[in-house]
Amino acid sequence: MGEEKSSRPRINLIKAHIDAIGAALRRMTKPPMTLMFPDYEEAWPEGYRGFILYDYDTCIGCSLCAQICPARAIKMYRVPGDKKMRPGYNVGRCIFCGLCVDICPVDALSYSYVHDEVYSEVKPMNMDPIDWTLWSKRIKEKEKSAKPKLKPVIDEDVGLRYEVVKSVEGEK
């Protein structure tokens, strides 16, 4: 024990305490680096994969999307009054891999930038084709009414800072 103590570097205790308190006080004067989420959003990178949107009129009902989906988030449904099978979407199962969008031969599926929806039940997350179409319209609206976008900037002084992005790149 005694030997360990003697090998320790000697520090000036009082100065060390004053330094520590000073450092804390100095940091109190700096602006917070919090992203105030519901009021501001982080700018989306290009090619961001959010919820999958579905266009009922373009779809030809080939069911390729349901076959490729690794999470079995897409299932084919029969819609009354429609000869073709139509895909339905379970947003709770989706892992946002984007394979369905890639494989769709007619581009009936597309990515959105929205990733934040809250469901208090499991049931509404599993949508049939009609629900999916309506839901896609709603998500598109949500995309349009976007909050101010911020992007992180490395700051010498603070470490990280968020700046408002003027023209949002990557927005469709």
């Binding site: 109190m28 680096m33 105030m36 603070v158």
Partner: peptide, 10 residues
């Protein structure tokens, strides 16, 4: 609030 300030949070 003070702890948040020192840690640059809100």
């Amino acid at each position: 609030k003070i702890a948040a300030k020192v840690q640059m949070r809100v």
